[in-house]
C-alpha cells in the first residue's frame, strides 16, 4: 500500500504543499503530531509535522532544502509516496488557558495552523505571530482568519510590521497578559522566543524536529539535550518541550551532525 498524492500547491517559490491520501493517519491525527516518510526504496526516512488533515488526507508543507524534500517537491498528483508512518509524537497539550500566542517562523507557519484551530476550539483567545524574511515568502495568511488574531512580521518590512517574530511577540506581550506561548520554527528562532518569555515566566512550548531515523522510540538519534542534563527523545517524549529547559546551543550542534553528508547528496 502506498500513499497517493491528491493535490500539489506551490505556496511560494520556496514552499510546497502536498495533500496525501492516508485515511488511517488522518483519522487519528491531532495538533502537534508528525509523520515519518520515505519516498522510494533507496530513500531516507524524514520527519514532517502535519500542517492539516481531513477525513481521508493529510497535508504536508515543506521546503526543498535536503535530498528528500527536493525529490518530494518534484512529485505530482497521481504519484505516490512509498511509506508514510504516523501520526507520531505526543499531541499538543490543548486546554483552556486564556490567551495563547502561537509564534511561527518560515515553514513553522504551517504546523501552527492546527494548533491555532485546536486552541481556538478549546475556548482560548489565540494570537498568531507569523514571520518571514519578505512578503513573497508568506503563505496561509487568510487561513488563520476566524481562528486567530494575526500579527505578521517581515524582516524587510515589505508586509505587516518590520522585524522578527520575537519583535512581534514582545509587542503582544507589552499589550496584554499572555498565558502561554507556542513556538514552531528554526531552532534559533525558538531559542530567542524562549529567551523572550523566560523573564516574564510565560510557559513556552517549542516543537523540536530533530535528526530522526525510525521515529518510534528505538534509535535514540532524536535526543534533545536539556539544561537539566536529563536526556529526552523527540519521538518518545516530544516533539513538544518546555522551551525554557532546552539546551539550545547543544541542540544546534546536534542538528548539524550530518551537514557534510547532506551537502554531498544535495542536488544543486
Amino acid at each position: 500500500m502506498t500513499f497517493p498524492i491528491v493535490e500539489k500547491e506551490t505556496l511560494n517559490e520556496g514552499t510546497v504543499l502536498l495533500r496525501v491520501k492516508a485515511p488511517r493517519i488522518a483519522a487519528h491525527a491531532q495538533a502537534g503530531q508528525f509523520v515519518v516518510l520515505r519516498i522510494r526504496e533507496k530513500g531516507e526516512r524524514i520527519p514532517l509535522t502535519l500542517a492539516d488533515w481531513d477525513e481521508e488526507t493529510i497535508t504536508l508543507v515543506f521546503q526543498p532544502v535536503g535530498k528528500t524534500t527536493q525529490d518530494l517537491a518534484k512529485m505530482l498528483p497521481g504519484g505516490s509516496i512509498r511509506d508514510v508512518l504516523g501520526p507520531l509524537g505526543n499531541p499538543a497539550e490543548i486546554s483552556k488557558v486564556g490567551t495563547v500566542v502561537l509564534v511561527g517562523g518560515g515553514l513553522g507557519i504551517a504546523p501552527l495552523f492546527p494548533q491555532a484551530r485546536a486552541f481556538k476550539e478549546a475556548g482560548n483567545r489565540v494570537v498568531c505571530v507569523i514571520g518571514v524574511r519578505t512578503k513573497g515568502l508568506l503563505f496561509w495568511e487568510d487561513r488563520f482568519k476566524g481562528y486567530a488574531e494575526l500579527v505578521v512580521c517581515t524582516e524587510d518590512g515589505s508586509h505587516g510590521m518590520k522585524g522578527l517574530v520575537t519583535d512581534g511577540l514582545k509587542r503582544v506581550m507589552r499589550e496584554r497578559k499572555v498565558d502561554r506561548v507556542v513556538a514552531i520554527g528554526p531552532p534559533v528562532m525558538m531559542k530567542f522566543v524562549s529567551l523572550a518569555t523566560r523573564e516574564a515566566m510565560i510557559p513556552t512550548v517549542v516543537s523540536i524536529n530533530s535528526i530522526m531515523v525510525d521515529g518510534i522510540g528505538m534509535c535514540g538519534g532524536c535526543r534533545v539535550p536539556l539544561t537539566t542534563k536529563e536526556i529526552r527523545f523527540s519521538c518518545a517524549d516530544g516533539p513538544e518541550f518546555d522551551g525554557h529547559i532546552v539546551d539550545w546551543d547543544a541542540l544546534l550542534v546536534r542538528n548539524r551532525m550530518y551537514e557534510d553528508e547532506e551537502k554531498a547528496c544535495r542536488c544543486t
Binding site: 530513500g43 531516507e44 535530498k67 528528500t68 531515523v213 550530518y258 553528508e261 554531498a264
Partner: peptide
C-alpha cells in the same frame, strides 16, 4: 550516497 541515509 546510492542510498540516501548518511552514516559517519
Amino acid at each position: 550516497p546510492e542510498y540516501d541515509t548518511p552514516i559517519k
